[in-house]
Design a protein around this nucleic acid. Sequence first.
DNA 1: CTCTGTGTTAATTAATCCTTAACGGATTTT
DNA 2: AAAATCCGTTAAGGATTAATTAACACAGAG
Lengths: 226, 226
Amino acid sequence: MENRDFRVLVVDDEPDIIEFIDYNLKREGYHTANAANGIEALAKAKDFKPDIVLLDVMMPRMDGIETCRQLRAMPEMDNSLIVFLTARSEEYSEISGFNAGADDYIAKPIKPRVLLSRLKAILRRRVRANEQESFEAGDLIIDRESFLVYRGSQKIQFARKEFELLFLLASKPGKVFTRESILGKVWGEDVLVVDRTIDVHIRKIREKLGDDYIATIKGVGYKFDK
Amino acid sequence: MENRDFRVLVVDDEPDIIEFIDYNLKREGYHTANAANGIEALAKAKDFKPDIVLLDVMMPRMDGIETCRQLRAMPEMDNSLIVFLTARSEEYSEISGFNAGADDYIAKPIKPRVLLSRLKAILRRRVRANEQESFEAGDLIIDRESFLVYRGSQKIQFARKEFELLFLLASKPGKVFTRESILGKVWGEDVLVVDRTIDVHIRKIREKLGDDYIATIKGVGYKFDK
DNA sequence: CTCTGTGTTAATTAATCCTTAACGGATTTT
DNA sequence: AAAATCCGTTAAGGATTAATTAACACAGAG
């Protein structure tokens, strides 16, 4: 899906910021609309049907948190994302505490590149969330619900880490994952685990599936390649 | 890549700020140069070839925005980043409106840790941004994601150095790369490797692709030419 | 508590990649 | 024409990276 297909509603009481965000989004091909306060935002959302709402937390009349609640209640917003714009990242705890239903937040001051890359990431994440928990890769069916992998009528059981690793690799067949990125995604960002650990799990996967599913790219990483 | 390899040009009319930033960057191993105004900045940029320019927006004689435009126009600045130093975040509209080509900005007052971590993030991002994931060259498709080269339906596998070398040459078909620049880009700036090594890798590439992809320019270097 | 499956690491072995030295041919310079 | 330079090629070892095995810790199930 191209950016051009995404609709973004920007809600902020400062015209400068609206203009700034609007300019950057338009340049990337997003459809945009804007509102200066919560009341206006609700009205605009109804017509505009945004995929994503960038919502300033601090606004006069009706604040972002209340606006968010009301937006969430609208049927038109069923599949939309709401992203808070917060003056400082410290306010995150506050926001999440409110549990107003925001999907993410972006800290001000907003930098063009950060805004755009975050937006992309958020939208990508949504796409994934909508994805089924089960998919096919090669002649395998990988099903997260049951933690099982099917090959034809054969059921193959994997331990959790093995499964997550296979799941990651198979989710993008052909793509080479570096050990670093594998660690980040399967084990978590700041986990102290040695690279060899990945190798061992790869080996266990190969033991169960055969050697011709996961290819080693020496000096780079692994890929699912069947 | 270590910080020591990065070159930062700091442009600000206040000597105090220059000194402050300079001190902090040097401590982290960056190479630095500085300029007190836009005119000086342009001259320095030409010699110093910075990877990144920290540019005060408000300056006498020629302001940061105009300086930025002119820097962008310089061929020496092709791969450089320009980061604005802005007095306050309110300057959004200004920054966004003119589209002078800044890559990011850092708000004053500048805190050392913020400066350094932002710089790291920005440089890291650049490295990625420069990396095209996949492109066509001649009848080849060179795909870094899978570390494969396709010729029609044929998949051709390369070892890492071979791949990087082919990737470099093919990224600018027709351009002659000297051995020196090849070493710098594929092997890294301060690696001690003998020229014959490149030849050997070129040979391996030719073995896999055929002799009519990479041409030797005697006394100069190699180019991708198909 | 014991047993089993899982996750991790260390240590060893295996694979392959990278680099170099050496030599020969080609081309350019002296 | 000789000398010098540059490039291509080969084969060998050294260096790097991955595969494999075995051992241990730990958690949860029974």
